[in-house]
């Protein structure tokens, strides 16, 4: 699905990580952990072609991400659902419209009606459908972001600290939704520094746990 091959990236001449390799196989579940500033978000952005690798190759759905034009990047984003820590909604649109946005921009707005209600029920936001994003709590916003990420039934879901702003119960609810998606065959990559969430998930899903530290990706797991 997505493959990073000896990828390096940095800011202002300083390498954030170098020669990192990672493969997201279809239906796999990955946690990416590591200290703040290690480059977790940067790595995720490389995975959905929001950044271009300085060295090495990123392949997204068998295509060289470095060679994709903007339209091709847009097309690949329709197969990758992204959940940000800050959710990134359009605040002038209702939650329902925000969730339907991926369908709207891909000219499939007519499909929204059926999918949308089902998704709103799935994430427990049916009552908040017509509220604006700033009117929702952190947990509700995260669930709405997850609903938006999956409305086009993407092959891959990438979540950056999806439980960063929510309490334990809500983080468990979001995690269970992501596990449910994985059981439906979706490939999941979650960046998180919340080790308790990883521990909680271990019993429900066979997840590969990666640690990004000192510019390298290491396989982790046993120590958790």
């Amino acid at each position: 699905m997505i493959e990073l091959d000896n990828v390096s990236y940095g800011y202002g001449g300083n390498a954030l990580f170098s020669q990192v390799s990672l493969t997201l196989a279809p239906g796999s579940f990955h946690f990416l952990t590591g200290p703040s500033g290690a480059g977790k978000t940067t790595l995720l952005r490389l995975c959905y072609a929001d950044l271009r690798a300085m060295k090495g190759k990123v392949r997204i759905f068998e295509q060289d991400a470095g060679a994709l034009d903007r339209d091709a990047v847009a097309m690949s984003r329709r197969r990758i659902g992204v959940v940000h820590q800050d959710c990134r909604f359009l605040d002038h649109l209702s939650i329902a419209e925000n969730i339907a946005l991926p369908l709207t921009v891909s000219g499939r707005a007519n499909e929204a009606a059926g999918n949308l209600q089902e998704l709103l029920n799935w994430v427990g936001l049916a009552a908040q459908a017509h509220q604006l994003p700033p009117e929702l709590s952190g947990g509700e916003r995260q669930r709405a972001a997850l609903a938006r990420a999956v409305i086009v039934s993407p092959d891959v879901i990438i979540a950056d600290e999806p439980t960063g702003n929510v309490d334990w119960d809500m983080s468990q609810r979001i995690l269970s939704l992501l596990i449910e998606l994985n059981k439906m065959g979706k490939t999941i990559l979650i960046a998180t520094h919340d080790l308790t969430m990883i521990r909680a998930a271990k019993s429900d899903v066979s997840a590969r746990i990666l640690r990004l530290s000192d510019g390298q990706i290491l396989q982790a797991g046993a120590e958790l």
């Binding site: 929001d50 903007r70 990047v73 847009a74 329709r78 921009v105």
Partner: peptide
């Protein structure tokens, strides 16, 4: 700028 960034995130092409 933020609106454009969000639209791109969800797969909007430049033409859209």
């Amino acid at each position: 700028v933020q609106v454009i960034s969000v639209l791109r995130l969800v797969g909007a092409k430049d033409a859209y």
